[in-house]
Write a protein that binds this DNA or RNA. Structure first.
Lengths: 230, 230
DNA sequence: ATTATTATTGAAATTGAATTCAATTTCAAT
DNA sequence: ATTGAAATTGAATTCAATTTCAATAATAAT
């Protein structure tokens, strides 16, 4: 659980809290609409319905507010720990599914924010690190199991990490191009969150286990068991 | 082969050509160093060793020059057609390998430019489309084969596209985080271009065929045949 | 009720870069 | 050698945005 790294915490008058919250909400709204790079202080204050100068009472600059808001978003929307617990030990497919569902949901419901995440990560090394740390951490449960899961493969720790990292990337591109960029060849048919989650999870599972997941769990991809050589 | 979309073509005096070329080279250099977002006209003219005003003789604005230069880069560094022909028909692994080697090489040698590609795509819808069109086109040879390759799966065209798109994303994240962001957990061990290419290709191949590639072709990942369930 | 503190406003100052342009230089053509 | 068109310069200008701040309003403390 990452604790707030911010000094965005002056005094805490009751009124101050409200105004500050208004600005944060407004920033999120504007970011969803125009992304981080085109967001202006004026946009935020206008959206919040306050004078532009007030911004500086509560935040140092746009980046500081954005970091604040997006760190929150990551902590609340992309943290999986709770969910993992609901899944029967050893049911890898369900576990991955639960995991991926969360990510897909974030893309589906907040594409603008997911985009802003990438924009900010590109701009700010610290935030970039934070995202990757989060990513790696989400993967760590799997990475740790690898030696036990595939003892015959005698993988090094590093190789296991590389493999899992590569697999985990599977989703990223298609999610970005589907939900953020609305790539026509993908949008040709609309997928529900559940279908998209399933697709990504199945592809991940196949790469990891050289098997299709149990067909009875599949709805959108139940035919992919036949996608195999020979 | 995308033809130049630019009106960056005024008169073509011998001297003009040189200066223009100097600016393009300088832009590439600066972009490699600082990326697209932090690049300034002054940086480019300084790097080129000319006065700042001269910029406008040859280019409308930074974005125009950048588009110009990056479209070139994509056309020359990320176009695979020639390579594909060298590969024995039906040798899927070699084909994918050749394909991926090109991409990995681009990341390894020009990480700053690859980063700038993403930056510009985020900023400019047209360029974003161009990149994706390129991406989809690279995938089309495979997508087209899918019905014949896996007739039993009875995949729709769209599903085939989704599957291939997901698989093709495999590399993107790890390449970005390895070569651009220098993620420590990945950099823990240094991989050669060949090794990275192999890893990505193997993971792609596994997801597609539910098989490991022929072990005799593998050097860095020859143990992954044992990475499978049961 | 009075005073002090904090919040809020919006016009004005500042910033940092893009852009223009009049003056100067280069160079190919004659 | 002279000419004129194109290339080049960099100081001056413009511009869009951030940032400051003096004045005013709201709220809390006594």
């Amino acid at each position: 659980m990452p604790k707030p790294v911010l000094e965005n915490t002056k005094e805490i008058s009751p009124k101050g809290k409200i105004a500050r919250a208004k600005l944060r909400t407004a920033a999120l709204e504007v970011m969803e609409r125009v992304g981080y790079h085109r967001m202006r202080i004026n946009d935020v204050t206008a959206e919040a319905g306050v004078a532009s100068g007030l911004f500086y009472h509560y935040f140092k600059d746009l980046k500081s507010l954005t970091l604040d808001v997006l760190q929150d978003f990551v902590a609340h929307s992309l943290h999986v720990e709770d969910i993992e617990k609901d899944v029967p030990k050893g049911d890898w497919y369900e576990r991955m599914l639960a995991h991926n569902r969360l990510v897909v949901l974030a893309y589906a419901e907040r594409p603008g924010i997911m985009r802003a995440l990438l924009q900010l990560a590109d701009e700010d090394e610290d935030f970039s690190q934070l995202l990757r740390k989060n990513f790696v951490q989400q993967l760590s449960w799997l990475t740790r199991q690898m030696p036990k899961l595939f003892p015959a493969a005698k993988m090094s720790e590093h190789q296991a990490m590389m493999v899992v990292y590569a697999l985990a990337g599977t989703g990223e591109t298609i999610l970005r191009d589907y939900y953020i960029n609305h790539e026509p060849v993908l949008r040709d048919k609309e997928l529900s969150v559940e279908e998209m989650t399933e697709l990504i999870t199945v592809m991940f599972y196949r790469g990891l286990f050289l098997q299709n997941p149990p067909v009875e769990k599949l709805r959108y991809t139940d035919n992919l068991d036949e996608m195999r050589k020979n």
